[in-house]
Each structure stands twice: as structure tokens, then as C-alpha cells.
Design a protein around this nucleic acid. Structure first.
Lengths: 122, 122
DNA sequence: GCAACCTTGACACGACTGTGTCAGGGTTCC
DNA sequence: GGAACCCTGACACAGTCGTGTCAAGGTTGC
């Protein structure tokens, strides 16, 4: 077995077991489970946890920020809306509320994401 | 004068004056100032404030989430790092840690942003 | 020149983030 | 079959987010 239990994973990644459960809860690193329900961390998860630590430390961000970035990536509608709002900086008076190139970007992203199994449009 | 004071702006946008100051503080809508220091909200800011309300209400997000999206847009380095981390989902074992198409996306975004006056690379 | 507005700064407060610890109960594996 | 681990759920606690309110003082505009 090259899958570690939560405590072992904690030791080799620098997170606490408590935090590994929390990181899982916010949807950033979700390990497999044993038949009995134990978390099993494989090499991929361990790497992911290490780089996650670096990412949070180097830039001044939190887990919830990453969680939001993840939502942006999984919800094209949200992605388009926020991108659109941020894009529409001051210079756009009232004339062209939400026009072509904006929707263009939006559609582009939707297509990129569509290629990866979605769960939108109820 | 077609610029409103904070109270007037509050009335026509649905925010409270307190919140308008807060929204400014997190960097999302920054009105001009009068000689004496009063905030002056023009049509562009008013529109922006209204669409901001809709954006927050429709999707389940907060001002801090938008503030983070704004950081992503202003800091290409941060953008690349988070995108990279999120992109590298499980299926990538250890072989190709952070490879071409990823950096491709990253560079593409950097270029898009470079066209809009940056303050990076110290 | 003064009423009506604005400014910043502070205290307050519930909700959530990030983190620890502890309790009661199930799993692993030698 | 028992020691050593794991699970979930809860309480706790400092820090931040989103909001309100109030105080002391400056600006606007008739």
C-alpha cells in the first residue's frame, strides 16, 4: 500500500490531521476512503497538499479564496458573471451595458469547461 | 452636477451609506472625491453598484469573493499560481508536474492583462 | 452663517474561517 | 483480541466579514 492514513499524511505534508479534514470539507483535496471509512492519501494528494501550503503562504490568500476560485472553475455561469462585472470598468458609460466581446469571453470559457463534465442547467 | 453624494447614491442603489464606504474599502467601487473630500457617485458608479447587488444576490457569493476575483485579475502571478494548482487535478500522477498547456493558459491570461496597464514585476 | 450633510474612527455584534481539543464509538492489523 | 489508530460531532476561541450606530469634527449651499 502506498496510501497513507491521515496522521501519516499530516506528518509528511505539514498540515495537522484536523486541517486535512477541513481542507477536504472545503473541497480542495478529497482523499479516497478505505472500506471502513478511513481516509487514504496517495502520492497525488500528498503532492497537492504540499503545493497547496506553498500557494497559501506565498501569496496572501486563504483556503476560502481557493474554494471560490474552484467555484469559478466549476460554475461557468458564475465565472461569466464575475468576469463580466470586473471587466466592465468605469470607462463603459451606459451605452453598451454588456456587449459582444464580453459575452464572447464568457462563451469561450463555457466551452472550455463544457469539455470536462458539468452539472449545470437544472 | 450629475454626481450624487453618498446618501443619495445609497437611496438609488439600495446599499446603505455605511456599505458604500465598505465597498470602496475593499476596492470594488471607488467614487471620485470633491475638493473637500466628499464622495461623488457618477452614473457609472451607480450602475456598477446596482449590478454588484444583483451579482452577489444571484450567485451565493460575498464581497470578499469578488475582491479576490479582482486580485486574480490584477496579479497575473497569483492568477497563474491558483489556476495552475486547480488545473492539476488528480489524474496527473507525477510525470508531468506543471506542463505545457497549463503554462499556455497562464501566458495567455498574462498577455490579456498586459494590455491593460499593470503594476507588476518590482 | 447655519442647517444639513459629509468625513474618519471606534465599539458592537452575529456569522463564518481556521485551528485545537475532547468524547464516544468504529477499524486495522499484528 | 487488544493496542493504536481512525471516524464524526461538538465546544472553544481568535480573527475577519458584513453591518449598524455613535462621536467629534469638516463641507456645502442657500
Amino acid at each position: 500500500m502506498d496510501a497513507l492514513t491521515i496522521q501519516e499524511a499530516a506528518e509528511t505534508t505539514g498540515w495537522s490531521p484536523r486541517m486535512l479534514r477541513y481542507v477536504e470539507r472545503v473541497g480542495l483535496v478529497e482523499p479516497a476512503r478505505s472500506a471502513g471509512g478511513y481516509r487514504l492519501y496517495g502520492p497525488a494528494e500528498l503532492q497537492r497538499l504540499r503545493t497547496l501550503r506553498e500557494l497559501l503562504a506565498e501569496h496572501e490568500i486563504g483556503l476560502s479564496d481557493l474554494a471560490f476560485a474552484l467555484r469559478l472553475r466549476n460554475e461557468p455561469e458564475l465565472r461569466g458573471a464575475t468576469d463580466g462585472w470586473l471587466e466592465a470598468e468605469a470607462e463603459r458609460p451606459a451605452d453598451v451595458p454588456q456587449s459582444d466581446w464580453l459575452r464572447f469571453e464568457q462563451v469561450k470559457h463555457s466551452k472550455l469547461l463544457a469539455a470536462a463534465a458539468l452539472t449545470v442547467t437544472p
